[in-house]
Write a protein that binds this DNA or RNA. Sequence first.
DNA 1: CAGCATCCCCCAAGATACTG
DNA 2: CAGTATCTTGGGGGATGCTG
Lengths: 137, 137
Amino acid sequence: MTRTLGAPTAGGRGITAALVPVECEVTPLLDVAFSRWTTPVLWTLNEFGRQRFVELERRLGTITPKVLTQRLRQLERDGLVTRTYHPEVPPRVEYEISELGRTLGPLFAGMASWAKDHMDAVESARRSYDEEGKPGR
Amino acid sequence: MTRTLGAPTAGGRGITAALVPVECEVTPLLDVAFSRWTTPVLWTLNEFGRQRFVELERRLGTITPKVLTQRLRQLERDGLVTRTYHPEVPPRVEYEISELGRTLGPLFAGMASWAKDHMDAVESARRSYDEEGKPGR
DNA sequence: CAGCATCCCCCAAGATACTG
DNA sequence: CAGTATCTTGGGGGATGCTG
């Protein structure tokens, strides 16, 4: 979560200062929306609309309430999700993807279609890498 | 990396069996191409083409050789990157993004443009969340 | 219901040092 | 050059238990 950028320690072996240390533009986004649970949570919110805590919990299947809370807080903090608290008895809380969060939709769609099209290729590559000692080595 | 799916433990609080435990299609892809270093490595390979170990190391700036090796191995195993070893003295190894890996290009482009367009909004949301005790609570 | 509090585990990633 | 070998750590995530 904390990106230790700006630390010019250059790590052990001296960097001769030549050859561009280019910055990858997508890196910051990874912390925001792409990790084990943030993506599924966002995805679910985007697909099924406004939902209560338990609904999310159940749809996500294996997530624990603690983790769900953590991710939701992070997403709320980053402005991707809005939380509305209804002071009733029993309490009711609803989560909804924000305007900003919704702009991630196309990306998710792209990822889903990539997965659909290519994940089996990945798995087969994985198998052949494991079975053979390594194809060309 | 290991996705503990299929464990129907349902975690602590009983799931009443109602309400769909829908599976998020993007999840498997996260392990493959979206984590702290796999994405930057893939990105760099996609942007700058075939490169040697050191070139990658330098362009990525803060990555350690150990981690770079680990990620490259995983990417090779998953068929997203190809490794060619030239038995010379000194040894030379070149990494190149594969056909399969290249199909991730559009996704990366989409992510980069999203970052460009919306990351400042995220950061400002983050700031206002931190400064105020929370906007509407 | 919607959580927070705790304790624990695991592993990606950092630091550092050493070879074929 | 292109790694491998250790040691260590941070924090995400699981398991359990307790409240407003």
